[in-house]
């Protein structure tokens, strides 16, 4: 009898196999159902309301920095009064939950638990704490209903100091920065204006009316989806990349040409 056969015939072997099979099925099941929403059934039947669900999500994912009742800690500010729009902006863009403390939380892929449903629940909970700006309606952020030219003037007057003429983003002091607007959804752009996330100031509805916000969204989305008429856009950050191309492509090319042209020596007679 070899050693393997002996192991196989051990009295405990059948239990080991059973446990292993159960574990495999469990893991496979867990993996398969990961994408679906665990609270679907409950929500559909209306047994759970968003605020309660949001509170439990908050305590699981946000409370380590913002405190168990969103009162704020030394590592995170209070969320009382920030409003649903702030939650939707921060969570849907992946900025929150933050990965690590730093000058600024960057846009990143959202964690797996984040989806439209959970974001809404979380937002409802934070909204219930002390009000604040709410999530804009679909019409409020519809670029098709805005006037891009008007929005462009407002964009140049209010946004490009930090976000650059083409929304490419730019540097601020001490590691902070204005992010690129190329990935922001119209809803996120609107929410950023009303809530003023991180280093950004608030542009409330008396400073810039909802109609003007929609115009700006129309301008931003139109310009960023525009095909560059002049060829490769070089990142649309202006003379820095242009100068780089002039030297790296232009001067190197001409130097190589000069080397090539003078390399052809006359044969010695």
């Amino acid at each position: 009898m070899t050693r393997t056969t002996a192991w196989r015939r051990h009295p405990l072997a059948r239990y080991a196999v059973l446990v292993l099979a159960l574990a495999l099925i469990g893991v496979a099941y867990a993996t398969l159902v990961q994408g679906s929403r665990p609270a679907d059934a409950a929500l559909a039947s209306g047994k759970l309301d968003d605020v309660a669900q949001g509170k439990s999500l908050f305590q699981a994912h946000c409370s380590s920095c913002h405190g168990l009742s969103a009162e704020g800690t030394s590592t995170g500010p209070t969320l009382v009064g920030v409003g649903a729009a702030a939650v939707d902006f921060q969570v849907s863009s992946g900025r929150m939950p933050a990965a690590n403390p730093g000058a600024q939380a960057p846009r990143k892929p959202t964690p797996r638990w984040v989806n439209e449903e959970t974001t809404r629940q979380l937002a409802a909970y934070v909204q219930s704490l002390g009000g604040g700006p709410t999530i804009p309606s679909k019409d409020q952020v519809d670029p098709a209903m805005g006037n891009a030219a008007k929005g462009g003037e407002l964009f140049r007057a209010n946004c490009i100091q930090c976000h650059n003429w083409g929304g490419a983003g730019g540097a601020l002091t001490r590691g902070k920065y204005a992010p690129s607007l190329n990935e922001s959804s119209p809803q996120q752009i609107y929410e950023a204006m009303v809530t003023g996330p991180q280093a950004m100031p608030v542009f409330n509805d008396t400073t810039i009316t909802p109609q003007e916000k929609r115009d700006m969204i129309a301008y931003i989305t139109e310009v960023r989806s525009q095909r560059d008429p002049g060829g490769f856009g070089l990142g649309r950050i202006g003379p820095v990349t242009e100068g780089l191309v002039a030297w790296v492509v232009g001067i190197s090319f001409m130097a190589l040409v000069a080397i090539w042209i003078t390399a052809k020596k006359r044969k010695k007679s």
């Binding site: 100091q161 650059n164 002049g230 060829g231 070089l234 950050i237 003379p239 820095v240 232009g250």
Partner: peptide, 30 residues
């Protein structure tokens, strides 16, 4: 070749000059 394939000074993105406006990333030519 550069004029054809590489966009330079896209003034339509910058917008018209207005002394009140200033953009991040304002740079002169090299």
């Amino acid at each position: 070749g550069l004029g054809t394939f590489a966009q330079i000074n896209p003034i339509w993105i910058f917008g018209p000059y207005n002394p009140a406006d200033i953009s991040a990333g304002s740079q002169p030519d090299f």
